[in-house]
Design a protein around this nucleic acid. Structure first.
Length: 419
RNA sequence: GUGCCUGUAGCUCAAUGGCAGAGCGCUUCACUGUGGAUGAAGAGGUUGAGGGUUCGAAACCGUCCAGGCACCCCA
């Protein structure tokens, strides 16, 4: 074992069983995206370092991106997120695209961090964005897409919630509490971590930032105020729209949702399992202006991203992957012996020409062995063509689940499998 | 980058300084025209690597490698 070359830390191998699940998940993301009329797109996995230098937050690029020189010596980056690529793609064709544009994508991303539960170095991410509209309709639509996705995969609103907040509201609150603009970004970041840190340490950090004792007390009370959203016209309107879109059972207000990325303005949201057992399933929000950072004209938008790792853990925990997922919708054709090999090949070929998938035995081993192989592949039908069948123009079709078998005229075989 | 934990057969684990084992899985046979059961036999190990301590190390010590979990950050 020790001599097998190891894979790269934080990457995952997708054996057929897992690949089937990955494809199923992608299918659900596609379905949710298309339900709202979003178009599929993708960009390159390799980008220039310059693209991320423009934005993305310092840490993501400096600490977490895979960056290395290409053979010409230029720095190349494995994309750690899609948004800068999206911004570039929009900026390049800014004057010919039809707005608002609704785009979605699902692909691999890389971040150099220590792997742990729910976090790997290579992961897949569903990205979906609505660009070119600044209204709350846009924000509501994206949240509704997320809620519809959860419905499609069987995660009910009693299990998963989309927690929503608004950065404008928090800025207003800070103003009321006379928290200076210098420290408010840092305070916002700290609020985002309230659930992670032990309270005494959290308070200590808050005081270190220059918050007074009375401000601290007020912040804490604000963060427990589940009705705080009523002070925000935007949130009031947003929740009304979500109600009309029929997804308000999935939505909950949470003043502690801030989001780490700096470019969010206005609405921000994160989806979590209700029990709080897992990391955030998806996160997103409204941004006033991304495209300008890569050289285009300002365009507002809203979007979210969902990594495959956490949603995978959640779907596993709640047993929501279909148990019958299989890519082997195929008929197994046995080979009775050397003399009848040509006959089996002929039958297999006829079935394939009719569009029926066939796994052909490569050996003339005894039938027990061939059938065991078919069984272990989880195939459900097997054909046996022995001397008796050959003589009478028949084929035996064996149901590997019920163990029943029947003799069928070779001429009727295709019709048998087609219906 | 920081901290804690773990590496023994394909998998899950046992052996608490004294002969490296079990269950499951795998191969073959009982069954030369029929797979999930049963029974029997068999294969499979440099105990992650290389050092040190010891009469003796899977175990103890330090180094490296790999994995897990938490921080940082975030999907």
């Amino acid at each position: 074992m020790a001599q097998i070359v190891h894979s790269i830390k934080g990457t995952r191998d997708f054996y057929p069983n897992e690949m089937v699940r990955r494809q199923w998940l992608i299918g659900k993301a596609r379905q949710a995206s298309q339900l709202f009329g979003y178009e599929h797109y993708d960009g390159p996995c390799l980008e220039t370092l310059e693209l991320y230098a423009a934005k993305s937050g310092e840490e993501l690029v400096k600490e977490q991106a895979f960056v290395f020189p290409d053979r010409g010596g230029d720095p190349v980056t494995l994309r750690p997120e899609l948004t800068p690529t999206l911004a570039r793609m929009v900026a390049q064709k800014q004057n010919e695209l039809v707005y608002p544009l609704r785009w979605w994508s699902f692909g691999p991303f890389w971040r150099y961090e220590r792997p742990q539960k729910g976090r790997t170095r290579e992961f897949f991410q569903w990205n979906i964005d609505l660009i070119g509209d600044n209204s709350l309709m846009a924000d509501a639509e994206l949240i509704a897409v997320a809620a519809n996705f959860f419905r499609l995969v069987g995660l009910g609103s009693e299990v998963v919630k989309v927690k929503v907040n608004n950065r404008h509201l928090m800025e207003d609150v800070f103003e009321q509490l006379a928290i200076s603009k210098d420290i408010s970004p840092a305070v916002l970041k700290l609020i985002d971590r309230l659930d992670k840190l032990p309270l005494p340490i959290w308070e200590e950090k808050a005081l270190e930032l220059g918050i007074s004792q009375s401000q601290l007390r007020q912040i804490k009370s604000v963060l427990e105020d589940e009705a705080l959203w009523k002070q925000s016209g935007e949130l009031t309107e947003l929740f009304r729209l979500l109600e009309s879109l029929g997804v308000s059972d999935y939505v909950v207000y949470d003043p502690k949702i801030i989001r780490g990325l700096d470019y969010y303005t206005g609405t921000v949201f994160e989806a979590h399992d209700v029990k709080g057992e897992f990391r955030a399933i998806l996160g997103g929000g409204h941004y006033a202006n991304l495209v300008a950072d890569v050289g285009g004209n300002p365009l507002p938008g809203v979007g979210f991203a969902m990594g495959d790792v956490v949603i995978n853990l959640v779907l596993e925990a709640y047993g929501l992957y279909p148990s019958q997922l299989s890519q082997k919708e195929a008929v197994f054709v046995t080979v009775f012996n050397e003399d009848l090999k040509a006959k089996s090949l002929e039958v297999a070929s006829q079935l394939r020409q009719a569009g029926i998938n066939v796994v052909l035995s490569l050996t003339e081993d005894k039938l027990a062995k061939q059938l065991k192989y078919a069984d272990r592949l989880n195939l459900t039908k097997a054909l046996v063509i022995g001397p008796d069948e050959e003589a009478s123009g028949k084929v035996i079709v064996k149901d590997l689940l019920t163990r029943d078998q029947q003799s069928i005229d070779q001429a009727e075989l295709i019709a048998f499998f087609k219906c």
